[in-house]
Design a protein around this nucleic acid. Structure first.
Lengths: 220, 220
DNA sequence: TGCAGCCTTACGGTTTTCCGTAATTGGGCA
DNA sequence: TGCCCAATTACGGAAAACCGTAAGGCTGCA
């Protein structure tokens, strides 16, 4: 069974529940953090010390407070982890039950399991841990259709683009920003084409409607 | 201290945390329910049996599932309780931290405390229980301005407008729609002027950013 | 090497949005 | 009635978004 587990979750109450699930497996080394930046630093440090964590259980939504955070939510954390090339297994654990979002996490961030907070969550989390330990993936029953449903593969580029559009940048500004970051494609044309495809996919009337739908679906 | 407490909360994990907080007070009679309809029935029955509960701790958001519910969320439950004239004390316990909503609960449903799920929630819930037992009200620190603060006035027209824009209608289409409904103002100019004011108010870069912010704030 | 196919970029015309200015309307009031 | 003020509407030029077409560039393959 997993030896060293990190739990990133800002709700104290829920940490109590997670503790119960983990100790039932006899896992003794459990670290709890309430901020994503702390989570990342702990993982990084453990890795450098040759004492890496072998499982991360992370919430997706974290409350903002006075502590300014670089990684603002679980998605940011998972993205950062992927860039680092840790060998750690990851379980996302959230109230979120929109399948688009769940699919995105598996596709883009290679999570190993998705557990939905809810009436069965302690049981689900235990199942997830068991499966992930056997190198399988796991999804809570209420979102288990997420991976079957065929949908346009939403690339990281698309997400990046949608987030820039959401922030109010013009196509031209976005093009400039992408060039600065050496990301391709970065022409205004390419941006418009991608946005068009996304509009078709989400059946959006215009860009405003596209952003609204993307937010409703939780993909940005 | 309270003798008989009912907890309405659908997330199993959180129930574990609440259990910890309550047993620390030596409260022995704690009932847990995962649906609002069940909560109401339990309260009703206990009252008729002359063994009423003296405290309710309820979440606001409950997940929908196959069980069809009459009371769909905590707000519905609190409303139902108020109509019944129970003498029970009530603590709302939610992830929600928008002061507008919190204020509404105190004003309309006469709750005794509002506790925010988060980094301090076990401590906060304990404080709330202590205060409420002494017939005081309590709010978690991060929403304690809810009752003082006058919230800004956003007209119904503005909401209507934002929702039409969100749906992807052009200014011209919105103008036509408003005319059909005999709502004024309805000119393209007026629409643009209102949107401009909203953009200034919400510090939005453009209309897309405005809609994104309005959605983030939960006003549409 | 040469070609096909796909992705990316460039460009121009049309539509929509943006924004300032000016005209019009309607209500309150002497 | 006549005037003022504020809200609403109209309009026009500039900017941005939208959309189709065409050119450029890269990769795989014969």
């Amino acid at each position: 069974m997993f030896k060293k587990v990190l739990v990133a979750e800002d709700i104290k109450m829920i940490n109590e529940g997670v503790k119960i699930a983990l100790t039932d497996f006899g896992i003794k080394h459990i670290d709890f953090v309430q901020y994503c930046d702390d989570a990342f630093l702990k993982l990084k440090k453990a890795s450098l010390d040759n004492a890496a964590f072998d499982l991360l259980i992370t919430d997706l939504n974290f409350k903002k407070d006075f502590r300014k955070q670089h990684l603002k939510n679980g998605t940011d954390l998972l993205r950062a982890i992927q860039k680092e090339d840790f060998t750690i297994k990851t379980i996302a654990f959230s109230i979120e039950d929109r399948t688009e979002k769940v699919k995105q996490l598996f596709d883009s961030y290679k999570i190993d399991a998705y557990v939905c907070k809810g009436r069965q969550d302690i049981l689900d989390l235990k199942k997830a841990i068991t499966q992930v330990y056997q190198n399988k993936i796991y999804l809570s029953p209420n979102v288990d259709t997420a991976l079957n449903q065929e949908s346009l593969q939403i690339q990281n580029f698309d997400l990046e683009l949608l987030m820039l559009v959401e922030k109010g940048y013009s196509h031209h500004e976005i093009s400039t920003l992408l060039k600065k970051r050496n990301l391709k494609p970065n022409s205004v044309s390419a941006i418009e084409k991608r946005l068009n495809n996304l509009k078709i996919h989400f059946k959006a009337k215009n860009t405003i409607n596209l952003i609204a739908k993307a937010k409703d679906l939780g993909i940005i």
